[in-house]
Design a binder for these strands. Structure first.
Length: 206
DNA sequence: CTCTTGATCTTCT
DNA sequence: GAAGATCAAGAGC
């Protein structure tokens, strides 16, 4: 039993070397390939962020996907090319961030659901009004607030500032389960998580 | 610990 | 008018 490695700042305040930037080609594949490969990658936004520990895949043929019923002003970015951010308002209150995948017009995306905070902790604590690292990014609405992502960033490319997603340095153990908070197609096991992580929005069943 | 509820935007009926 | 890819606070056990 090895615990997931937790990068800590070095004495000079820097972090362990990040993998190369993920570019459009990485995202131009099935959400069911991209989603598990995002676990362990590092998402940064303007100097804040952390290791992706939980995501969910939403394919356009999936009744739970925002794009299932066709294009609307809200979901238009999903119908564009891969490698861009789709940000939407959740329950009238929160912002949630997706990465658009697959060929253009496929309208499929991966929802980023939780991060293990590693970068810009002070800024994220201030935005969240909390100190506890476990509560900073353990949910899609929480992480958007912590990183300062809003509808103003909808449609931005993921491989250019302020966004950056770095390839994971190693292949971690990934667990799967049913998605959270949906009623349609609730039995599809399209939630992916970092095994043993303490930074998930909820534990995985089993 | 679990359960319930309010907040309040976008879309669909 | 209702539901939804959510969260935090409060009540109860």
């Amino acid at each position: 039993m090895t615990k997931p490695r937790v990068p800590k700042p070095s004495s000079d305040g820097t972090h362990p070397a990040l993998g190369p930037l993920l570019t459009r080609r990485f995202f131009a594949r099935s959400v069911h390939e991209v989603a598990p490969e995002l676990i362990g990658a590092t998402l940064l936004f303007g100097g804040t962020g952390g290791i992706i520990v939980e995501v969910e895949a939403y394919h356009h043929t999936d009744p739970a996907a925002h794009s299932f019923g066709g294009q609307t002003p809200r979901n238009a970015v999903m119908f564009g090319p891969p490698g861009f951010a789709y940000v939407y308002r959740s329950y009238g209150i929160h912002w949630c961030v997706n990465v658009v995948c697959e060929p253009e017009d496929s309208a499929s995306a991966v929802l980023i659901r939780a991060l293990e905070p590693t970068h810009g902790l002070a800024a994220m604590r201030k935005r969240r009004g909390l100190d506890e690292p476990r509560s900073l990014c353990s949910g899609p609405g929480k992480l958007a607030q912590a990183l300062g992502i809003t509808i103003a960033h909808n449609g931005l490319p993921l491989d250019a500032a302020p966004f950056a997603i770095h390839r994971r340095p190693r292949t971690p153990e990934v667990v799967t389960g049913p998605r959270i908070g949906i009623t349609k197609a609730a039995d599809y096991p399209w939630r992916y998580g970092l095994k043993g992580s303490r930074f998930l929005s909820k534990p995985f069943p089993g």
